[in-house]
Write a protein that binds this DNA or RNA. Structure first.
Length: 491
RNA sequence: GCCCCGAUCGUCUAGUCUGGUCUAGGACACAGGCUUUUCAAGUCUGCGACACGGGUUCAAAUCCCGUUCGGGGCGCCA
């Protein structure tokens, strides 16, 4: 029998990094065993589900390369893959449960339930349905339904005994039935809740392994009870650890970026993000940290999944991303960088300055601020930055003029030539080479941290460099006039 | 409050199943050195953990129990 796994996101907002995390391992297991991977949209919450959210989820999973064999957009033999399009189905199965006595109709109002819950909470008891409608005679219930009274359908959970299952990741889990609530299966709007829809669809879609987040452990008995009530064989369950904020609470957008769109916009590479996510709770036997998704597929075992919830460490992601960027081919990088360059920038331009920044980029999104001086007409900076430490502005401008002259004399300056001249001048003036180069760096780029200066000057072109050097001379002159001494103090 | 899950450096982890090779290995981060025109990158070094207590055993990070701590769940959300 071939394995079938699924990812079942709810389209209620931005595509979540946790969705990708869970999808990744479902996909890996499916591929490892030559099985199928299904995308199912759980849009039974009419108030919160949006087509826009569904679109973004598909987009983001595709962006990451976590592709599904069956789903709402690609079709498949078990559709429809959107729960909102399967409504009649769930009602049929709810009827079956009612028929079998495994579920019952509940007419309690939201207000009453609210009151009950508040009272329980005040008494420090576990909030749960008090069972008022559980004992309603079938005939009375049917009469009230016929009269059009709004109601829900609830699962009739046994009052004693326990439900247990062998978790693929954690081993035996056993929960007392008395702690399980009579869960609503069908809402008063006729839509199923997650619990019903999930079980019915997993069954109908032939899902063999349910790999989902840890937060579902306590609802698993409800699902097991449903399978049992229907007389269905149960799939295997595996509960992944939860991604965490740095305070170890469940990852949330208040404390950590969670939208996959954010990671894309920041310029994280999809393959790096996937690699990073795989590192959260999983490791390959070789112990290396940089590996492609194919390596996850080849080595995936549930026993290699850690049970502790990993703290999502952006710093490490950043490092990994930088590693991936450095390994990218120049043409590939140029293509990926283009959308991050300022509008109107040509691919040729990106290509030409790429070698200067490739090793300095941790995110594609850093490209602009790293290279803004290439595109600006003029650069802005404090004149004081031009003055080497322990040097007076008047002396500084002297050195700068010397270089300007030498530079002007170069017909078509190349990096080695600029470097040679710079060093020679520094020596003649008795300056540290670094002091002169830093002054030039500020003059040419407006920054104190840049790609290698000589190469940068070549890439910038002689005209631009000359103009910026002249501007720097003017700034230094001004400084020398207003602050003859003590020197080198930026105002 | 009740139920469940978990516990190795600050963080991600290897080792745990199948006890000895672990004076616990790697990576990120951090600190320092080297390299160097700056910043990165690279390289070397340093810092740094088996939560605690019992038990089993010749031997425990590893098995068992308890405690503590952390997390999750307890919706007509998923």
């Amino acid at each position: 029998m071939t394995v079938r796994l699924r990812i079942a996101p709810s389209p209620t907002g931005d595509p979540h990094v946790g969705t990708a995390y869970i999808a990744l391992f479902n996909l890996a297991f499916a591929r490892r065993h030559g099985g199928r991977f299904v995308l199912r949209i759980e849009d039974t919450d009419r108030a919160r589900s949006t087509p826009e959210s569904e679109r973004m989820i598909s987009e983001s999973l595709r962006w990451l390369g976590l592709l599904w064999d069956e789903g709402p957009d690609v079709g498949g033999p078990n559709g429809p893959y959107r729960q909102s399009e399967r409504g009649a189905l769930y009602r049929k199965y709810a009827d079956e449960l009612l028929e079998k006595g495994a579920a019952y109709r509940c007419f309690c109002s939201a207000e009453r339930l609210d009151q009950v819950r508040k009272a329980q909470e005040a008494a420090k008891h576990q909030p749960r349905y008090d069972g008022k409608c559980r004992i309603l005679p079938r005939a009375e219930a049917e009469a009230r339904v016929a009269a059009g009274e709004p109601h829900v359908v609830r699962l009739r959970v046994p009052e004693d005994g326990f439900t247990s299952f062998a978790d693929l990741i954690r081993g035996e889990v056993r929960i007392e039935n008395r702690t399980v609530d009579d869960q609503v299966l069908l809402k008063s709007d006729g839509m199923p809740t997650y619990h019903l829809a999930n079980v019915v669809d997993d069954r109908l879609m032939g899902i063999t392994h349910v790999v989902r987040a840890e937060e579902w452990i306590s609802s698993t008995p409800k699902h097991l009870l449903l399978y049992r009530a229907f007389g269905w064989e149960t799939p295997q369950f595996g509960h992944m650890p939860l991604l965490r904020n740095s305070d170890r609470t469940k990852i949330s957008k208040r404390k950590n970026p969670t939208s996959l769109k954010w990671y894309e916009a920041q310029g994280y590479l999809p393959e790096a993000l996937v690699n990073f996510l795989a590192l959260q709770g999983f490791s390959v036997p070789e112990g290396i940290e940089i590996f492609p998704f194919s390596r996850v597929v080849e080595t995936f075992e549930f026993s290699r999944i850690n049970t502790t919830g990993p703290v999502f460490d952006l710093q490490k992601l950043e490092w990994l991303n930088g590693e991936y960027i450095r390994k990218l081919g120049a043409e590939d990088l140029a293509q990926r960088l283009l959308p991050f360059a300022r509008p109107g920038t040509s691919l040729e331009t990106v290509r030409s300055i790429l070698p200067l920044v490739q090793g300095r980029l941790k995110r594609l999104g850093e490209f602009q601020e790293l290279t803004d001086f290439f595109f600006a007409d003029r650069v802005e900076y404090e004149a004081g930055l031009l003055v080497p430490k322990k040097l007076e502005p008047a002396r500084a401008v002297e050195g700068l003029r010397t270089f300007v002259q030498a530079y002007a004399a170069m017909a078509a300056p190349v990096a080695t030539e600029i470097d040679r001249e710079g060093r020679a001048i520094a020596e003649r003036l008795g300056w540290k080479v670094g002091d002169l180069f830093m002054m030039l760096r500020v003059a040419v780029t407006g920054k104190t941290a840049t790609p290698p200066l000589c190469e940068t000057m070549v890439a910038l072109g002689k005209d631009k460099v000359a103009a910026r050097l002249d501007e720097a001379v003017r700034k230094l002159d001004g400084l020398a006039r207003t602050a003859p001494s003590p020197a080198g103090q930026p105002q």
